[in-house]
Design a protein around this nucleic acid. Sequence first.
DNA 1: ACGAATCGTAAGCGACGGCTTACGGTAAGT
DNA 2: ACTTACCGTAAGCCGTCGCTTACGATTCGT
Lengths: 106, 106
Amino acid sequence: MSYEDAITALADPTRRVIIDRLRSGALPVGAIAKGMTISRPAVSQHLRVLSDAGLLTVTPVGNRRVYAIAPEGVAGLRAYLDTLWDDALAAFARAAQEKAKENNNA
Amino acid sequence: MSYEDAITALADPTRRVIIDRLRSGALPVGAIAKGMTISRPAVSQHLRVLSDAGLLTVTPVGNRRVYAIAPEGVAGLRAYLDTLWDDALAAFARAAQEKAKENNNA
DNA sequence: ACGAATCGTAAGCGACGGCTTACGGTAAGT
DNA sequence: ACTTACCGTAAGCCGTCGCTTACGATTCGT
């Protein structure tokens, strides 16, 4: 739900592979697990973490469960990184200014 | 160095606290650890991970080591999330269009 | 020159996370 | 109705990660 869960979920390489598989569109579990080295239950567990983090949506269609990337989940992470980016730039500029003032005094 | 290391580093809550402390400007290790519940060596280890991931810069000044947020490291993560965001939106729009076509056929 | 301060590193321990195998439950095919 | 396909969950094992304590190195203060 929160951006913290999202970043924790995306920290795992296997889960990023799953996300990459969903970039071009929604897929059922079997199609996601197809070709991966880990077992299908393992994929299911990762899908659980990702959807709990708000990064995926689940849509039961008949026998299968179709997973898709949830844009809102990604948006939360982007918002966090944006504030971090702004603060980092501001602090960086301030430090550069102080450095310049020091050089003038020398 | 890569965005993968960056996201792994930011996945830890304690490391995000450290990052937050550096938002307003650079700080030496002692000042960062001040007021935190964990020991100073633990903070040092986290700082190591963060700087290895390219999220922090180190500047030895006299006796102390001053850490600051590295904007370039944050930029790498933002770039990754931007591509993910674009793909997610595109896939979402495509799915919505297919859905609409289905409804027309019905 | 000597003691104090600041910080990184090594070793060891406990907790958490990811994987596998096994199982149960629901929907589709015949 | 019975079998097959698809998928989630439980239990258990093992590696990794974060923390602490202990130590060593470098720099500042006097």
